[in-house]
Amino acid sequence: MLTIRNLECGYGRLPVLRGVSFDVGAESVGLFGPNGAGKTTLISALLGMVRPTAGTLELDGQNLAALSTYQIARAGIALVPQERELFPAMSVADNLELGAAYIPHARDMIDERRESVLGLFPILKERFRQLPGTMSGGQQRMVAIGRALMANPKLLILDEPSLGLQPSIVAEVFEKLAQLKTSMSILVTEQNVRESLKAIDRGYVLENGRVILEDTAEGLLHNPHVISSYLGI
């Protein structure tokens, strides 16, 4: 599925990622780290928003480094961005439809995908004709996740999905992710390690642009560094 080898990239002369390597197979993978560790830069590189200076990025053997963001989306990677990036003056219905309309392997199954998304997030059925800007942060996050799921992605990436949400909504979001991991590969970056460990199979810890730790969710939960740095125990 996703293979990253010795990835280096940054902004101008400032290096952010310094030789990052990891894989995501048919599983749910977490990427943890403090602010400034390089998580969002890694996501940006994966989506073609930042160009790598070295290393390789491949999805099912296809080189992603040469593609634009829209081509990467069409290749099968769907992103739920930190800032949600919805279309504020379009209804929830249109936001969802646009999630699939330009993805070759999803545009012929829009109705089917929509039913599946509304089944996962029933609140969106009630808000179907509403503009996202008039909805709560949690509901907007659900629209963003729903829009990404409309694309029937090979790999779903969620960048800090719990950011700015109240704890009850965070728990709901991770519960939904746990349901989804049986049907697609997931990569989630998070600072809320405790909640996300419930929804992932494996995880990586990224610090100062390098992967310093890799383990199963269970292993990370009992790792002394993770406990002291991220679980606050």
Partner: peptide, 23 residues
Amino acid sequence: RMGKAALAVGQNPRGAAIVGINV
């Protein structure tokens, strides 16, 4: 479809690229 894509691009070009629209 093209019109909705254009509206999406007008409202949020980054969001549009993320859903596969050639901005």
